[in-house]
């Protein structure tokens, strides 16, 4: 705590004393208020800034991935809607399960020549050299992996429920740079599942993916039966 200049405050206080009732000790009131406020502000700083910094570990992805370039019309990735374009790489397997982040084989379908890149970025060259040439998997961190106790069927939501990708994933598919992966040190959850909006205030559907958010949407869209516990828990 810094000490306020006492002399300067002295004159100011005595002039104030003229306006306040005699039973009020202005000096002590102000001092009380000051300390309360200081504690209050410090707590806000700790709670809003320090705590999230400590709670989340930051891990950069091994290389950058430019989603925007890939969903661009010229990229050659087909699809009438945005969702269809996403599904070009993030595909469903034959059994209806969702493949998630593509394996290197999927990348190689287009980036088949490690010698010549399709685009012009350095990142792509690095990718071709280090991964495509050696057919090595990229160890991506997954932003949206739900914990082990959760079962989530993409196909039920995308194919049957006609949900667009952005409903849960926001603008992720349009980003040029993928963000640093932040993981909750206590729970091991990604910040994208729950933690982006610490206020708890939710403006977008993709701000949070907790159980209540799933249930809320099921209820709103008339799929109350899917709120049965076993539908989403395993």
């Amino acid at each position: 705590m810094e000490k306020p200049d006492e002399k300067l405050g002295e004159g100011f206080l005595s002039s104030l004393n003229d306006f306040v009732p005699p039973w009020l000790d202005l000096r002590s009131t102000l001092s009380t208020g000051f300390f309360l406020l200081a504690g209050f502000i410090a707590a806000l700083v700790v709670g809003w800034i320090l705590f999230p910094m400590i709670l989340y570990s930051k891990q950069p992805q091994p290389i950058n991935f430019n989603h925007a370039v890939h969903i661009d019309e010229e990229s050659g990735i087909e699809g009438e809607t945005e969702t269809e374009k996403c599904l070009y790489c993030h595909e469903f397997r034959e059994d209806g399960s969702f493949a998630g982040i593509p394996k290197i084989d999927k990348c190689i379908e287009c980036h088949d020549d490690p010698e010549s890149s399709i685009g012009e970025t350095l990142e792509e060259k690095e990718f071709l050299q280090n991964y495509v040439a050696e057919e090595k998997e990229v160890s991506w961190f997954s932003y949206y992996r739900q914990p082990d106790c959760v079962y989530f069927s993409h196909i039920a939501h995308v194919n049957m429920g006609k949900q667009e990708c952005f409903v849960c994933h926001g603008d992720h598919g349009k980003s040029e740079k993928i963000p640093v992966y932040q993981q909750n040190r206590l729970t091991g959850y990604s910040i994208n599942i729950w933690g982006k909006r610490l206020s708890g205030w939710k403006t977008n559907t993709w701000d949070r993916m907790k159980m209540d958010d799933c249930a809320e949407c099921h209820t709103k869209t008339g799929h109350e039966e899917n709120n049965a516990c076993f539908v989403c828990h395993k």
């Binding site: 469903f92 076993f230 395993k234």
Partner: peptide, 18 residues
């Protein structure tokens, strides 16, 4: 659980086939 996950698996398969 009556192998509930098998129900989910079967549903996924059905969904994949429309």
């Amino acid at each position: 659980s009556f192998c509930h996950h098998r129900l989910m698996r079967a549903k996924n398969q059905a969904y994949a086939e429309g």
